[in-house]
Design a protein around this nucleic acid. Sequence first.
DNA 1: ACACCTTCATTCGAATTTGAACAAAGGAGT
DNA 2: ACTCCTTTGTTCAAATTCGAATGAAGGTGT
Lengths: 159, 159
Amino acid sequence: MDEPRWLDEHEMAAWQGFVAASNLINRRLEQQLKEGSGLSHTQYEILVQLSAAAGGSLRMTDLADRLVTSKSGLTYQVTQLEKAGLVIRRSCPSDVRGVFAELTQDGWLVLRAAAPGHVATVREVLIDVLSREQLAVLAEGLGEVSARLRAAERRSPTP
Amino acid sequence: MDEPRWLDEHEMAAWQGFVAASNLINRRLEQQLKEGSGLSHTQYEILVQLSAAAGGSLRMTDLADRLVTSKSGLTYQVTQLEKAGLVIRRSCPSDVRGVFAELTQDGWLVLRAAAPGHVATVREVLIDVLSREQLAVLAEGLGEVSARLRAAERRSPTP
DNA sequence: ACACCTTCATTCGAATTTGAACAAAGGAGT
DNA sequence: ACTCCTTTGTTCAAATTCGAATGAAGGTGT
């Protein structure tokens, strides 16, 4: 770290574009979901992950891994969703410590109702702005970035 | 919104890659900055924006626009930085309501000390993972995405 | 000068996020 | 069986975030 390699003009543009887009997209998504269905982006993502899982349920730890949140943050949000009746907790038969979060009927309905508006916004802010080729590069590049970061986290966990 | 255009496989990969990378990078950056210099990513970005501005100072509103935060969030963080002695507030001579946040000498020093570690991490998680061509596409595409979102916000402000 | 609308930054309360500490249980090695 | 280390999910206090409301001042049009 004696003589750091600073970012050149192009690298800086890529980095700033990424950070700005990330923040702006998040803000827009948050706003759309809130006014469209009363959900936060985090809550929406929880419902999505559960809906994609077998039986509409996942262990708390699995869920926390797929989203990128702390365990305590997930506990909080699942409690909120449980109060709202969109999710219930079930204890795991094979492991007394384990807890499943499971989508309720209302959870499915709310997700179904929220999805079209959300997808439309995702198109509006990102997908429909970019060409097919740009999307391919994005998927490829950021997929690799994510994979490496996940691997790095497994090598040095944050408990 | 009657018959929403869902995302196909490739679009989904791009979107999920973007969201995952965004969250994972943020988490890593937050961790590195905290342990490397005791700053949060938000605080670091405030210092960067001030250092890039003429006289090392910016109006609160300008600052809030360049970062992507609410005004009240900025007020809070500037207060924290002021307590830490890295920033001071100055009132604007031409507009009594205006407040400048200005980098102090300590602010410059802390930023200088924090920058190398931060840049190294940015390289590690994003820049050095991608090829020159991928970076170019990223800069171009996400620059456009950001520009559109900023323009949209100006058309319908969030006060 | 006046009324009216906008802009600036802060304050306030509520919601959320985080990390550390915790208790309970699993699993491996002896 | 027993010790040791890990994993699981929650709780707690503290830090951070946001939005709405506020007060004060700028700017405009008449």
